[in-house]
Design a protein around this nucleic acid. Structure first.
Length: 552
RNA sequence: GCGCCUGUAGCUCAGCUGGAUAGAGUACCAGUUUCCGAAACUGGGGGUCGCAGGUUCGAUUCCUGUCAGGCGCACCA
C-alpha cells in the first residue's frame, strides 16, 4: 500500500517537475487518526525549488493523482501535508494478508539469503554469566532472529578467550582454594577470583570429576602439581556452567570459537607475519608495535610484549580475519560498552593487513551497563559469584520470559535499570504479562467460538467498520515496517515497544466490542481480525524469544 | 585531560532518515464486570525535551559550545 501511494505521488510530481529522480517520497503514519492513514510532506519539500506556497503545490499534486478505488479521500492539511484516507477494502486487505501468511507474516527478503554472523556474549570462561552478559544475550539473540526474519542466513557465534592472562589467574585461584587457602588470606592471589564457584571447581578437581562442555570432555587429574590439568579442568568446568546459564536463558549458538585454537593452528603467528610484511610494524623497547595510528587509533598498540607473549589484540585481529575468510560480508559484534575501545583497534589491525576489508567492518552493537534494583535498592551481590548478580539468579527469580523482555526492551545505548519487583509482578504493571495476556485472551475467545480458523481467510470483512477496528488494523499493518526498521537499525527494542502498543489496541478493542455476537458475518469478521492480531503478537514475541501462551 | 554513550512528566522509558496539539506505562485522582478472562478498559491533572547559540518554511531530532551522569583510556581481556 505504501508503495502504491508512493507511485501515485511520483506520477503526480511528474506533472509539476521535470526531473523527479532526485525526489525521495517519504510517507509516514500520522500519530493522529484525524490526519488520515498515510501522510506526505512532498509539497513542503517542493516549495523551495518551485518557489510556491506549499498548500498550492499540494492542491496541484492532488489534482494530478490518478483516480483509483484504494483511496477514499485525499486532503491538504496544516502547512501543506497531503493526507490519504484509505478505502475500507484497502484497510481490510491487511487482515487477509496476515491470515494467509500466518507465522511468516512480517518477514521479508532484504538479506537475500546472504551470510551474516552475530557474535555475542563471548564471556571469558572465568566465572558464571552475569546480568551484563544477559543483556548481550537477549539483544544478540533478538538481533539474530530479526536478521533471519529479514532474509539473512544467520550464524550465532560465541568466542572464548581461553588463552590469556585471565586464565592463568583462574588457574592459580583454583589451586589456592584446592590447597585450602581462604580468599581472605594474605597468600591468596592478589587479583584472584574470589567467588564461591572457585571453591566448587577446586572440590570437583580434587574429586577427579569429568566435565563435558560443548564437544570436549575433561577429567580432572586431582593432582595439584599438575597445573595444566587444573587449567583445562577449570576452563571446561566454567564453560559447562555457562552452557547451563545459556540453556536456562534459552539461547543457542551455532559456533563456539576458541582463542586457544587460533594459537594451536598457527594462525596467530600467521597474522603477525602478515602484519610485519605489510610494513606497518616497528620494534621499540623490546616490544613489537603496530602503527594503528595510521588507521585512526589514538595511539599505537603493542603486538608482542618484551617478555615474548602476544597481547590479546593479536588473536582478536586473527579471529576477525578468520570471520572474513569464512565469507561473512556482514558481521555484527554485540558487546558491552566497556569494551568499546577495541573497535578502533580491531578495525585498524584489519586495515593494516591491506586485503580489502572495508574500513567500517565489522559492525558493532554496544550495550550500556545494567543496574539491578530490588525494593528500591541496588542489588550488587550474589552468593555464587560474589561481586556481581548472575544471570541464572535473575532467571530463577523472575523467569526467562520477563528477563529476556526487560533486557531487550531498552535501546542498547541507554543504561538499563532492571527492576526485579516489576519484572516479578504478575500485574498490569508488567509489560510482559500485558502482551502475553492479550495473546491468551484471544486464544480464549477463539476456543469459545469453536469455529474453524482456516475458514477465516475467506471471510467477508465488511463488518469491520468501527474506529476501534480501523485503529487495530492500522497497527497490525505497521508490523512488517517495524521488523524491517528494527533490523536495519539493529534495534530490537523497537519490537518490544511495538508489541506493547499492539496489545494495548487489542485490549481496548476487547473492552469496547463484544466479539461472539449472534450475527454470523459480523462474528466471523471479528474472529478474523483477532486471529490476525494473535499472529502478530505471536510472531513479534517470537522475535524477542518470549513465549506466547494460550492461557496463563 | 582525551574518546564513546546518555540527559524528555515524580519514577521507568518511547519518539520511526527534521514535520501537525511532544507520547506510553507507573504513581496520584475519578469511574467501568447480570455480557467473550478486571493480569483489562475509560477519563483527569502532571513538560522551559539539561542549558545557550547556530542551520531553515519548520528542531526533542542536525551542527557547535557548555553543564551533569555512566563507561573506557595497559607490554589485562
Amino acid at each position: 500500500m505504501k508503495e502504491f501511494i508512493s507511485n501515485l505521488l511520483v506520477q503526480a510530481a511528474n506533472t509539476l517537475v521535470e526531473d523527479t529522480s532526485s525526489i525521495n517520497i517519504i510517507l509516514e503514519r500520522p500519530k493522529s487518526a484525524a490526519h488520515g492513514d498515510f501522510s506526505c510532506n512532498l509539497a513542503m519539500m517542493l516549495a523551495k525549488p518551485l518557489r510556491q506556497n506549499p498548500r498550492v503545490i499540494a492542491e496541484q499534486l492532488i489534482n494530478a493523482i490518478p483516480q483509483n478505488n484504494q483511496i477514499a479521500k485525499i486532503e491538504v492539511a496544516g502547512a501543506g501535508f497531503i493526507n490519504f484516507y484509505l478505502a475500507a477494502d484497502a484497510k481490510h486487505a491487511v487482515v487477509k494478508a496476515i491470515l494467509e501468511a500466518g507465522d511468516q507474516y512480517g518477514q521479508n527478503q532484504t538479506g537475500k539469503g546472504e551470510k551474516v554472523q552475530v557474535e555475542f556474549v563471548s564471556a571469558n570462561p572465568t566465572g558464571p554469566l552475569h546480568v551484563g552478559h544477559g543483556r548481550g544475550a537477549a539483544v544478540g539473540d533478538c538481533l539474530s532472529r530479526l536478521l533471519a526474519a529479514n532474509g539473512w542466513d544467520v550464524t550465532r557465534e560465541f568466542y572464548y578467550n581461553d588463552a590469556g592472562a585471565q586464565i592463568d589467574n583462574l588457574t592459580i585461584s583454583v589451586l589456592a582454594r584446592a590447597k585450602g587457602v581462604s580468599t581472605n588470606d594474605i597468600s591468596f592471589p592478589e587479583n584472584g577470583y574470589r567467588g564461591e564457584y572457585i571453591a566448587d571447581i577446586a572440590k570437583a578437581f580434587l574429586a577427579k570429576e569429568t566435565i563435558v562442555a560443548d564437544d570436549t570432555e575433561v577429567t580432572a587429574s586431582g593432582d595439584l602439581n599438575d597445573t595444566e590439568s587444573v587449567r583445562h579442568f577449570s576452563v571446561a568446568y566454567l564453560r559447562h556452567e555457562q552452557d547451563l546459564d545459556l540453556r536456562a536463558f534459552q539461547i543457542q549458538f551455532d559456533v563456539f570459537s576458541l582463542e586457544s585454537a587460533l594459537y594451536a593452528s598457527g594462525k596467530v603467528e600467521d597474522t603477525v607475519q602478515s602484519l610485519i610484511k605489510s610494513g606497518h610494524t616497528y620494534e621499540e623497547e623490546g616490544a613489537l608495535w603496530l602503527r594503528t595510528t595510521d588507521f585512526g587509533d589514538d595511539k599505537d598498540r603493542v603486538m608482542r610484549k618484551n617478555e615474548g607473549g602476544y597481547t590479546y589484540f593479536i588473536p582478536d585481529v586473527t579471529y576477525h580475519l578468520e570471520k572474513w575468510n569464512r565469507g561473512f560480508i556482514k558481521v555484527i559484534n554485540e558487546q558491552g560498552a566497556d569494551h568499546h575501545s577495541t573497535i578502533t583497534r580491531v578495525r585498524a589491525g584489519l586495515q593494516a593487513l591491506d586485503i580489502g576489508i572495508p574500513k567500517a567492518w565489522p559492525d558493532y552493537v554496544l550495550h550500556q551497563m545494567v543496574t539491578v534494583m530490588r525494593g528500591g535498592e541496588e542489588v550488587k551481590l550474589s552468593k555464587r559469584a560474589g561481586s556481581y548478580v548472575t544471570l541464572r539468579d535473575l532467571i530463577e527469580e523472575v523467569g526467562c520470559d520477563a528477563t529476556r523482555y526487560f533486557l531487550a526492551a531498552r535501546k542498547s545505548d541507554s543504561q538499563l535499570i532492571f527492576d526485579i519487583d516489576l519484572a516479578r509482578a504478575q500485574t498490569n504493571d508488567n509489560p510482559v504479562y500485558y502482551i502475553q495476556y492479550a495473546h491468551a485472551r484471544i486464544c480464549s475467545v477463539l476456543t469459545q467460538w469453536e469455529g474453524e480458523p482456516s475458514s477465516l481467510a475467506a471471510a467477508d470483512l465488511s463488518a469491520l467498520a468501527s474506529s476501534r477496528e480501523a485503529i487495530l488494523m492500522q497497527k497490525l499493518s505497521e508490523f512488517p515496517d517495524v521488523v524491517q526498521q528494527a533490523a536495519s537499525d539493529l534495534a530490537p527494542h523497537m519490537i518490544a515497544n511495538y508489541l506493547k502498543e499492539c496489545a494495548s489496541e487489542l485490549h481496548s478493542y476487547y473492552n469496547d466490542t463484544k466479539f461472539l455476537v449472534d450475527d454470523t458475518s459480523t462474528k466471523l469478521a471479528r474472529m478474523a481480525l483477532i486471529t490476525a492480531t494473535r499472529h502478530i503478537l505471536k510472531n513479534g514475541l517470537h522475535l524477542l524469544g518470549v513465549s506466547a501462551p494460550n492461557n496463563m
